[in-house]
Design a protein around this nucleic acid. Structure first.
Length: 661
DNA sequence: GACGGAATAC
DNA sequence: GTATTCCGTC
């Protein structure tokens, strides 16, 4: 009905996109496996089995042969293929089901996050019970991982038998799966991009199955896509097939309207049904330990049916997983890859975040304490978690300031504070390291996006990726919970987890433990983090605080609790006995001035920021002239002039004062 | 059968 | 980076 480009995309493009598998220009083995798995004709050689995500290779040789054919490796055999599969263990894409021959299991967690970085989980503030209802996949059940369209989801009837769920492209791919090198491969590699090719629907495809979908996946693949794209793609819960690009929807940010869930993130008592999304086996793949959740087959209408890469499913899946993942110590790092991922924001004003909830280990199954795992450390209603849009974001669309959130606490701090019950008083609301950590990561992006991070004179590193220099690793221990049967990745996992936590916490600690931090505070002592979190590090000496007057913005209210004024170590009063460094004095003064001005003028953010930057620039020059200013925006002449004047005045004054010391 | 190191190809 | 190939080990 529709041109391939727009019609059902069933099989996510990324599965075949080179970009999705760096280093590999062809279909990846796991893609291939999935492909076979979903095709009835191959049920005889490979099929889903047992647990969710678990499959068995009934005919290793045949599978190998097929794989070999696809890859033009006639010499392929199960031994080799299995080697390849084993490599997936490390990547956590797969693991072996021990004790069962030729039986492996997908780790969809990994797959999803890795391949759906664009998925916005913002609406996930809602509460998807982390305990996803298991999908009863009886033997032979169709667990359609990849191929599925919204229509599938919406029409359970069809789902179980429509092989046609494959999009045209997918189908072609499918064909390719069995084709020999002669043409299959080439076709494969070509069409994937095209999407424009004619549609040859082979299997029962025909009309409905491939049904309309919300635009191509392709379009949203870009890691830096904005919410618009995302939501456009989703088409909103109500209308999955929403093709028309909406003009910069105002609700793009965590639009409740788009949330498939009720306003309240909390699964009301017994409200489970509502909260139970058609989760994929993915979740249950790691049912293990932490989640003594009770399977409730009745939860979702589609539950038993299938899980697919359908955006809806994926979204739900991710949301759910996000929740669970936090409880299970998902590595924040995983999210660092994807600034666009907006972690669910509980935004629940109430709350005492017993965040510790999110704490490792002790999970209360049915509970939603996990929400508190993602608390917004800031009281502000501000959607600080605004995903990074970098330059792409029209100014008018970004009514939010980007603020860096308190960096993560260090391990010690964490232990001290985030401990169970983590007194940590409301202040570090965060308690829940993870939640914050995540938001932190996204904030990082923001910061960098604002040009506040890159600084270092350097090239346009900013533009290149828009991402802060964060050392990211492909690993995503999304799975802190491994099944018993899972292969041994335990140690590595644990370590990573630790690390991840540290990453986050140490950042916070840095900020928190350095009352005297703002001005001086080079990354100081934080062990392992430095190399990982380059960007968020406290504003380098030469850099202006993120925004706003130094005194205000820099230190998040939550941290404010004690003696920790930025310039803290120094007497609050200018006339203090101590000798305040020129720089600091200036800063303070400047802040004051700014504040006054601000109140008087209500100048907008941008301006202030610019001014501030200017100011600091001035400081640098006057003072120790440390690092070059972020070659960023050019402040409005007006402001600049004013700033300049102000600067001079203040500087002079300060100089005088300084002499007293 | 399963695992994983090492070298290598792409 | 993702396989493929070999191969030794359990």
């Amino acid at each position: 009905m529709k041109p391939p480009g727009e019609s059902g995309f069933a099989f996510p493009d990324w599965a075949y996109k080179p970009e999705s598998s760096p280093g590999s220009r062809q279909i990846q083995l796991w893609h291939f496996i999935l492909e076979l798995l979903r095709k009835e004709e191959y049920q005889g050689v490979i099929a889903w089995q047992g647990d969710y995500g678990e499959f068995v290779i009934k005919d290793p040789d045949e599978v190998a042969r097929l794989w070999g054919a696809r890859k033009c490796k006639p010499q392929m055999n199960y031994d080799k293929l299995s080697r390849a599969l084993r490599y997936y263990y490390n990547k956590r894409i797969l693991h072996k089901t021990k004790g069962k021959r030729f039986t492996y299991k997908f780790n969809f967690n990994k797959l999803v996050l890795v391949n759906y970085p664009f998925i916005d989980m913002g609406s996930a503030g809602s509460g998807v019970p982390q305990s996803a209802p298991p999908v009863p996949t009886g033997a032979g059940t169709h667990f359609r991982f990849p191929p599925s369209t919204p229509s599938d989801v919406l029409s359970p009837n069809e789902e179980l038998r429509s092989p046609g769920v494959f999009s045209t492209v997918a189908r072609r791919m499918a064909r390719g799966s069995v084709s020999d090198c002669s043409d299959g491969t080439s076709v494969t590699s070509e069409i994937e991009e095209g999407g424009g090719g004619g549609g040859e629907e082979r299997a029962s495809g025909g009309g409905g199955a491939g049904g309309p979908s919300g635009g191509g996946f392709r379009s949203i693949l870009h890691p830096r896509l904005s919410h618009e794209s995302l939501f456009r793609m989703y088409g909103g819960p109500g209308n999955p097939a929403h093709p028309p690009p909406r003009p910069a929807p105002a609700h793009r940010v965590h639009p409740d309207p788009l949330s498939p869930f009720p306003v309240s993130p909390l699964p009301g008592p017994g409200g489970a049904g509502l909260l139970a999304p058609p989760l994929s086996p993915a979740l249950s793949m790691t049912p293990s330990s932490h989640l003594p959740y009770t399977p409730s087959p009745t939860l979702s209408p589609m539950l038993g049916s299938h899980f697919s890469f359908n955006p809806e499913d994926m979204k739900r899946y991710l949301q759910a997983h996000t929740q669970s993942v936090y409880n299970y110590h998902l590595s924040p790092r995983a999210f660092l890859h994807y600034p666009n991922i907006v972690i669910p924001q509980p935004q629940r004003p109430d709350k005492g975040i017993n965040a510790a909830a999110g704490e490792r280990g002790a999970e209360r199954p049915g509970l939603n304490s996990h929400h508190s795992a993602l608390p917004h450390p800031h009281p502000h209603p501000h959607p600080l978690h605004h995903p990074l849009h970098l330059g792409e974001e029209p100014p008018h669309l970004s009514p939010f300031k980007f603020k860096l959130q308190p960096p993560p606490l260090g391990r010690k701090q964490r232990e001290a504070q985030a401990r169970p019950g983590s007194s940590s008083s409301g202040s570090l609301s965060s308690a829940s390291g993870l939640g914050s950590s995540v938001s932190f990561s996204s904030d990082l992006s923001s910061a960098s996006g604002s040009g506040l991070v890159s600084s270092s004179s350097s090239s346009g590193s900013l533009s290149s990726a828009g991402l802060p220099k964060i050392k990211v690793e492909p690993i995503s221990d999304i799975e802190s919970e491994e099944e018993v049967e899972v292969t041994d990745i335990s140690d590595e996992e644990g370590d990573e987890r630790e690390e991840d936590f540290d990453l986050f916490y140490s950042q916070q600690r840095r900020e928190q433990q350095q009352p005297n931090g703002s001005a001086a505070a080079p990354p100081a002592d934080d062990d392992l983090d430095e190399d990982v979190f380059k960007a968020p590090a406290p504003p380098p000496p030469g850099l202006p605080p993120y925004l706003g007057p130094a005194g205000e913005v820099r230190r998040p209210p939550v941290l404010k609790s004690e003696p920790g004024e930025p310039a803290a170590p120094l007497p609050a009063s200018p006339g203090g006995t101590k000798c305040i460094p020129l720089k600091l004095r200036f800063k303070r003064r400047w802040s004051e001035d700014q504040r006054m001005e601000a109140s008087a003028e209500e100048s907008d953010d941008k301006k202030v920021r610019a001014e501030e930057q200017e100011a600091h620039r001035g400081v640098e020059e006057n003072g120790e002239g440390e690092s070059p200013p972020p070659a960023s925006d050019c402040p409005p002449p007006l402001a600049q002039r004013r700033v300049s004047a102000e600067l001079h005045r203040a500087t002079a004054q300060l100089s005088l004062e300084n002499n007293d010391c």
